[in-house]
Amino acid sequence: MGRQLTISCFRYNPNIPGDKPRMQDYKLEEHEGMTLFVALNEIREKQDPTLMFDFVCRAAICGSCAMLINGRPRLACKTMTSMLPSRFTVMPLPVFKLIGDLAVDTGTWFRDLQIRAEAWVHTNKKFDFNALEVRMENKTCEEIYDPEQCIECGCCVAACITANIRPDFIGATGINRVYRFLIDPRDERSNAEYYEVIGNEDGTFGCVGLMACDDLCPKDIPLQQNLAYVRRKMAAAGLKLDFKGVKTS
């Protein structure tokens, strides 16, 4: 006989006219190896089919099931209920648009981020279908793999006070994304071009250094190091740049 869990769950469907945001309690019995993902599915199957939440992979790869668990952004599939008290709260991530209950739309936000950060390899090399791929040093490959692990769950954005109060801030995930291309030798962008993308208050210089991203990243990406690297690199690049101003008066 497992513990009796009480999950206090945020409920609100913006699509139902007149629906009011509220907290609703669900009770269920805990069993061996239960994750919050399993618990929520049990609730949806057996108690309340109207409960909305996102999931796809249940293995911390898709980044869909991020939510505030007892106030902290985490992945539901990577959170064992045994780590939590018998009564806890679940709420949707802030910053992102609420779809309903625990489900938020991270897609639109991240799509916009990809465009702003120009998150693709910029190269002028013509692709030759017949040639062998250019080999990459193992060390470089490992270095790129590190920031590349980002699953775009949005935990770092939700945990960031700056992202919460300044909607234009690109967040740790955005700076980390630029870092990924900065260290990729295939990307031919100059530092000045990267600076154009991220060398401003909405980018790397907007970070206050609260490090909730670093502490709460479900993939344990070393965000402190990556963010500081981008900041140093962009500061060095920016100091060398020459901008022509527009005289407005």
Binding site: W109, D112, I115, R116, P167, D168, Y195, E196, G199, N200, E201, D202, F205, G206, M234, A235, G238, L239, L241, F243, K244, G245, V246, T248
Partner: peptide, 25 residues
């Protein structure tokens, strides 16, 4: 959150070092 290319952001971009200087300072 898309950066609007309006007058203000365009002018601010041409003063592209302000944010860096302010942060450094």
């Amino acid at each position: 959150m898309e950066l609007a290319k309006n007058l203000q952001t365009t002018i601010n971009r041409s003063y592209g070092k302000t944010d860096l200087y302010v942060d450094l300072a």
